[in-house]
Nucleic acid binder design. Structure first.
Length: 541
RNA sequence: GUCCCCGUCGUCUAGUGGUUAGGACACCGCCCUUUCACGGCGGCAACACGGGUUCGAUUCCCGUCGGGGAUGCCA
C-alpha cells in the first residue's frame, strides 16, 4: 500500500507547505520579449539567456576554488546577458554558520561579483537559502515516496560502520551503501516506526545500464549504474542532502547551466538519476578543472593564502584577483594581453575556451598581475587605493612638513605616488616604501645603514653634503629636484668623488633603505629642512 | 582497492595531421641608470613514455606511467 507512506509523512512537522506556489513544472528561463518587427527567430533557435548560480555552503571563508567557480558562473552570465543567482546551501546544520555566510558575501562583494538573485537581493525563485526551502524538498520527497522511487533507511552510523568493518575484515572493499534497507518488508518498517527509530531516505538507483551526459567542458562523461549506490537524499534530521536539495533547487530556480568544480563530477550521475526520478529535464553541466597548489598537490593553507580575504590582506586588489583567477583555466587566446580589467574579461569570456586540465596556483604570477593592475590604474585610482594604507598606519602630513604644492596628506601622497611610478606595485609594501615621508620613526635597513652611513667615510660625506645644501640653497623656499642634483654633483666633483659616493649614503640616511625612488626627487618631496636635518642626524649618529 | 578525469617550457597557457611549436610568470644576460623597480633587447626552457593509424603525428586510437578527484545521513 503506497498510501501508507504518505499517511506517515503527513504527520511530519514540515509536511504542510507554508509558501506560496512556486513553479513546479519545468521552469524554463524567462524568454526574451518577442520581437514585433523585423526577423523573428524561430523559437527553437532563439538565444535563451542562461541562468547560472553559485551555491556555496556557509562553512568557511570564500576559498580561491569557490571564488573561481563563482567567477566563471558570473562571467558566463554577464557575457551572455544571463542571470547570476546566489544560493546558500546550508543544509548541514552542524557546520553552517552566520559568520561564514557573511564572509562569503564579503568575499563576493570584494571581488565585485554581483548577483541578480539571492538571499539578500530577493528574486522570483526564492527563498535562496536552502534551510528556508525545507517544505519544497519535503513535497518532492513525498512525490518520490509515493512512486516508490525512494525508501527508508533505518541504518544508523554505527550499523553502517560495523558492516563496513566486517567487509574489510573479510578482505573486501566497502563500495558504499550496501542496499541493506532496500527491501525491508512492511512489518519491519512498521516495527521500526513503532519504536520511533529515526530514518533517512535513499533513492533507488538502477543496477544496470549507464548514466551519462555531455559536459560543457569535458564532452561526454559516463558512469556505469552498477557503481552508483543508493545514496541518502533526506537525512534523519529531516534535512535534504546536498544531492537532493541541489537538484530540486536547480530545477525550481530554472538554472540552465550548472558550472561547478571537477570534484562534483561523481555527484552528477546520481543527481541525474534524481532528475529522472522526478521526471525533470536536467540542466547542462560543466565541470571546471581543480585549482592545485604550486606543487600540484591539493591546494591548502600550507601553500600560503587560500581565502580571498587573505589575498586582500596581502595587498592584492580585487580586479587583479579576478584577472588571475580567470587565467586559471581560461585564456584570452594566442598572444593576447593577459592583463585585463574585469570588464574586458567579460567581453572575451567563453565557456568553449575553458580548459579541462587542473591548474597550479602561482603566487608569483598573481603578484605580477597585481603589480600590472596597480601600474595601469589612473593616478586618482592609485590614490584611492594608497590613502587608506597610509591612514591605517596613523600617518598624515605634519604641519611643519608641508611642502609647496602638496599641503595636505592626499595631495602630498599624490606627489609621492607619481614619484614612485612603477615602484608602487604592492599595497602591503607601500608603508615601508614611503613611511619615511611621514615620520622620522620609519623602517630602517640596519645592514644598509651600517654599510653606507655608519662609517667614518659615510658620516663625513653626509656632513659635508648637509653643509653644502644649506649654503647653496635657500632651504626655506621650496626647491626642485634639479637644484638638489646640481649641488650634489658639484660637490662630488669638488671632492673628486663619483656622485654615487654621496648619493648612496644620502639615500640610506634619508630613507633608511638602500633602495628608493630617485634621490633628488626624494629630497624635493622631503623638503630642504627635513633633508638637511636627516643628513646631519645621520652624520652624527 | 574501485570508478572518473587530466597530461605542451619549472608554472599559467596558445596551437596544428606537415609550424623555426607562439605568448606570459619565474630565471639568466645586456641596455637604461644614483639604488631599486618600471621599460627595452636577448637567452634558457615543453609536446610524459611505448605502441599503433597515417606518406607524415605534439595533434587521432590503445596501453603504461604520473597527477588529481570521488568513493559521507559534508557540500
Amino acid at each position: 500500500m503506497r498510501g501508507w507512506w504518505i499517511r506517515s509523512n503527513l504527520g511530519n512537522p514540515w509536511a504542510r507547505p507554508s509558501r506560496p506556489a512556486v513553479p513546479t513544472s519545468n521552469a524554463e528561463p524567462r524568454a526574451p520579449a518577442p520581437a514585433t518587427t523585423g526577423k523573428v527567430p524561430h523559437p527553437m533557435n532563439a538565444p535563451v539567456p542562461p541562468r547560472v548560480r553559485f551555491a556555496p555552503s556557509p562553512t568557511g571563508h570564500l576559498h580561491v576554488g569557490g571564488a573561481r567557480t563563482a567567477l566563471f558562473n558570473w562571467l558566463y552570465a554577464r557575457s551572455q546577458g544571463g542571470t547570476f543567482v546566489l544560493r546558500i546551501e546550508d543544509t548541514d546544520q552542524e557546520r553552517s554558520s552566520d559568520e561564514s555566510y557573511a564572509a562569503i558575501l564579503e568575499g563576493m562583494n570584494w571581488l565585485g561579483l554581483d548577483w541578480d538573485e539571492g538571499p539578500d537581493a530577493g528574486g522570483d525563485f526564492g527563498p535562496y537559502r536552502q534551510s528556508e526551502r525545507l517544505d519544497l524538498y519535503r513535497a518532492h520527497l513525498i512525490k518520490l515516496a509515493t512512486e516508490d522511487k525512494v525508501y527508508r533507511c533505518f541504518c544508523n552510523a554505527d550499523d553502517l560502520a560495523a558492516r563496513e568493518a566486517a567487509v574489510r575484515e573479510a578482505g573486501g572493499v566497502w563500495e558504499g551503501y550496501d542496499g541493506h534497507c532496500r527491501h525491508l518488508d512492511a512489518d519491519a518498517i512498521a516495527a521500526f516506526e513503532a519504536e520511533s527509530r529515526p530514518h533517512a531516505w535513499r533513492l533507488r538507483t538502477p543496477d544496470e545500464g549507464s548514466t551519462f551526459w555531455y559536459d560543457v567542458i569535458v564532452d561526454k562523461r559516463e558512469f556505469q549504474n552498477e557503481v552508483l549506490v543508493d545514496r541518502v537524499i533526506v537525512k534523519a534530521d529531516g534535512f535534504p542532502t546536498y544531492q537532493f536539495a541541489c537538484v530540486v533547487d536547480d530545477h525550481l530556480m530554472g538554472i540552465t547551466h550548472v558550472l561547478r568544480g571537477d570534484d562534483h563530477v561523481s555527484n552528477t550521475p546520481f543527481q541525474l538519476l534524481i532528475y529522472q526520478a522526478l521526471d525533470w529535464k536536467p540542466p547542462k553541466f560543466g565541470h571546471m578543472p581543480m585549482i592545485l597548489g604550486p606543487d600540484k598537490k591539493r591546494l591548502s593553507k600550507r601553500h600560503g593564502a587560500t581565502s580571498v580575504a587573505e589575498f586582500a590582506d596581502q595587498g592584492i586588489i580585487p580586479e587583479a584577483m579576478v584577472n588571475y583567477l580567470a587565467l586559471l583555466g581560461w585564456s584570452p587566446g594566442g598572444s593576447a594581453d593577459e592583463v585585463m580589467r574585469t570588464k574586458a574579461i567579460v567581453g572575451k569570456f567563453s565557456l568553449k575556451k575553458v580548459n579541462s586540465s587542473p591548474a597550479a596556483f602561482d603566487y608569483d604570477k598573481l603578484a605580477h598581475i597585481n603589480a600590472m593592475h596597480i601600474k595601469r590604474l589612473t593616478p586618482e585610482e592609485r590614490l584611492d587605493l594608497a590613502l587608506p594604507m597610509i591612514e591605517k598606519q596613523g600617518w598624515g602630513l605634519a604641519d611643519d612638513w608641508r611642502i609647496h604644492g602638496a599641503d595636505d596628506t592626499r595631495a602630498y601622497l599624490a606627489r609621492l605616488l607619481a614619484m614612485l611610478g612603477g615602484r608602487f606595485s604592492s599595497l602591503v609594501n607601500l608603508p615601508e616604501q614611503i613611511g619615511f615621508f611621514f615620520t622620522d620613526d620609519h623602517f630602517k635597513d640596519q645592514e644598509a645603514w651600517d654599510e653606507h652611513v655608519a662609517t667614518d667615510e659615510g658620516r663625513s660625506r653626509l656632513k659635508v653634503l648637509a653643509g653644502a645644501l644649506s649654503e647653496s640653497l635657500d632651504l626655506d623656499a621650496p626647491q626642485e629636484a634639479e637644484a638638489f642634483e646640481g649641488v650634489v654633483r658639484e660637490l662630488a666633483e669638488k671632492l673628486g668623488l663619483k656622485a654615487g659616493d654621496l648619493i648612496h649614503p644620502a639615500r640610506v640616511a634619508l630613507s633608511g633603505q638602500s633602495r628608493s625612488a630617485g634621490i633628488f626627487e626624494v629630497m624635493e618631496l622631503l623638503g630642504g629642512p627635513r633633508t638637511v636635518r636627516r643628513l646631519e642626524t645621520a652624520a652624527s649618529a
